[in-house]
Measured scan of single mutants.
Amino acid sequence: MSIQHFRVALIPFFAAFCLPVFAHPETLVKVKDAEDQLGARVGYIELDLNSGKILESFRPEERFPMMSTFKVLLCGAVLSRVDAGQEQLGRRIHYSQNDLVEYSPVTEKHLTDGMTVRELCSAAITMSDNTAANLLLTTIGGPKELTAFLHNMGDHVTRLDRWEPELNEAIPNDERDTTMPAAMATTLRKLLTGELLTLASRQQLIDWMEADKVAGPLLRSALPAGWFIADKSGAGERGSRGIIAALGPDGKPSRIVVIYTTGSQATMDERNRQIAEIGASLIKHW
């Protein structure tokens, strides 16, 4: 067993022997301040990774656009098919120029040779490549099948209805392509620590998230040296922004954090800054 596999296998073990965790309302004060600064709703939840206990939450059962955070769930569904012998990570998928959609920095470079399922998941999570996500959605049967996968996990809230990039439209009061912070946090925890996926697939999923290259201005910008984070960000229309993450000190994750916002007129930089400040408060009061 590799060191990384050992780390993920012992996530519940280490967490069980940690000192009790206590909620700190100071972080919620910052979440509410972010709402004021952005002029928009902000949803927040913080779960203990081992027990699933909610440590703090704000608007945990209000719907927010998922945006690209759905790509972690998508690759979880792909990995479940791999575990069941219905898919192979090494299978190569070929596609054409007509398949390319807006923001496809990886797939646009491989029109000639195609990409493997493993490479597509890596591109979808680490670079948020939209064509990679659409190609992977095709392998599982489309958005409705991802929703069905989530329902089978016990998540009857999260739903995907459309493809990239239309799913980022974020129309107010439109339930399409949305989740709730509580539902997303619980589902992410199941994917990373539950028995739904094999140990190898859980490790692969967290490795992809740990290698995320496009979430630097968010929670990662607030992390002290030595902290662990595996995350996936999302951005959408109407001032929408979000991030889902597993993080913790001492090089291992111990909490799940989900943050979503929508309806702001603020710039992307300002949305990023507010999420980073929430992260800084979380870490300060850990």
Rank of each mutant, 00 (worst) to 15 (best):
A9R: 08
G90C: 09
M66D: 00
T69Q: 01
L55G: 07
L10T: 13
T107W: 01
S254V: 12
T112Y: 15
L282D: 01
G242Q: 02
R241S: 06
S240Y: 03
F17Y: 11
V82A: 10
Q4C: 10
A246C: 12
Q274Y: 10
D36C: 15
P249K: 15
I3L: 12
A40F: 04
N130M: 01
R159Y: 06
A222F: 08
Y103I: 04
P20E: 12
S201P: 03
V117G: 02
A225E: 14
G239D: 02
L135I: 14
L136W: 00
G142N: 07
G90L: 10
P20C: 05
A16I: 12
M153C: 15
K144V: 12
C75F: 05
M127P: 01
A211F: 09
F64I: 02
T198N: 12
N50M: 15
E102C: 07
E270K: 13
R202I: 07
R162A: 06
T112M: 10
L199P: 15
V8Q: 13
L192F: 12
I229D: 01
S80W: 12
M66C: 07
H24Y: 09
D250P: 09
G52E: 07
L10V: 12
R162I: 02
A215R: 04
S221N: 11
Q86V: 14
I229P: 00
G154I: 02
C75T: 12
G236Y: 01
N50H: 12
T267M: 11
R63K: 09
N134W: 02
K252E: 14
L19R: 08
W286T: 01
L223C: 13
Q86G: 10
G142Q: 04
D155I: 01
A9L: 09
A170W: 11
I171E: 15
T27C: 08
F149H: 08
G85R: 10
P60S: 13
N272I: 03
A225N: 15
H285P: 02
T131Q: 03
T138M: 13
A9H: 12
A276R: 13
K232P: 00
A225F: 10
E108W: 08
G154N: 07
N173Y: 12
R41T: 10
N134F: 03
A246L: 15
N168W: 03
Q265E: 15
G76C: 06
F6V: 11
E87R: 02
G52V: 04
E169Y: 12
L197K: 06
G251Q: 13
D113L: 08
R162Q: 08
N134L: 02
R159V: 07
E164A: 00
A266Q: 11
D174F: 03
Q97K: 14
D129E: 01
R238H: 14
E145L: 09
G52H: 06
I229M: 08
D212C: 04
T186W: 15
Y44D: 01
G216V: 07
H110Y: 13
I283V: 12
T262A: 09
S2E: 05
P65G: 03
I11V: 12
K30L: 11
E62F: 07
L100K: 04
E166P: 06
P105C: 04
N130T: 02
I93L: 12
E62D: 10
I54A: 13
G52C: 04
A211T: 10
Q265N: 10
Y44Q: 01
R271H: 07
A40Y: 03
H285A: 09
K71I: 00
A16L: 14
S57H: 13
V72N: 01
S104T: 06
F6W: 08
H285M: 09
E61I: 09
Q4W: 08
L100R: 04
G263Q: 06
T107P: 01
M184R: 00
G242I: 00
I283R: 06
E195K: 10
T262I: 09
A170Q: 07
L38C: 07
V72F: 03
T262W: 08
K213L: 13
V78H: 03
L196M: 13
Q97Y: 15
A170I: 09
K252F: 10
L74D: 00
N152Y: 13
Q265A: 15
G39N: 13
Q4E: 15
N50T: 14
N272F: 02
L192V: 11
K30Q: 10
G39S: 14
P181E: 00
A148N: 14
I275G: 01
D99T: 09
V257S: 03
D231Y: 04
E237Q: 14
E169A: 13
H151Q: 13
M268K: 06
H156E: 10
P60E: 15
D207E: 14
E164N: 00
M66I: 10
N168G: 11
V42D: 00
M1S: 01
A182M: 15
L199C: 15
F228G: 05
P60R: 12
P181W: 00
A225G: 13
A266L: 15
S201A: 10
M268Q: 08
L120T: 04
D33Y: 14
I259G: 01
H24A: 15
V257N: 01
D177F: 01
K232N: 01
R118F: 11
I125R: 00
L196V: 14
T178Y: 02
I11P: 05
M1D: 01
G76I: 05
S240E: 09
A245Y: 01
E108G: 12
P105Q: 06
K144L: 13
S122Q: 15
A123Y: 04
H94E: 11
T267H: 12
N98C: 07
A182Q: 13
V42I: 12
L223K: 07
F70E: 02
F149C: 06
R271W: 03
R92E: 08
D99M: 12
N130H: 00
A40P: 02
P60M: 13
G216E: 07
R189E: 09
L89P: 07
S254E: 13
H156W: 11
A34V: 11
L137I: 10
S254T: 14
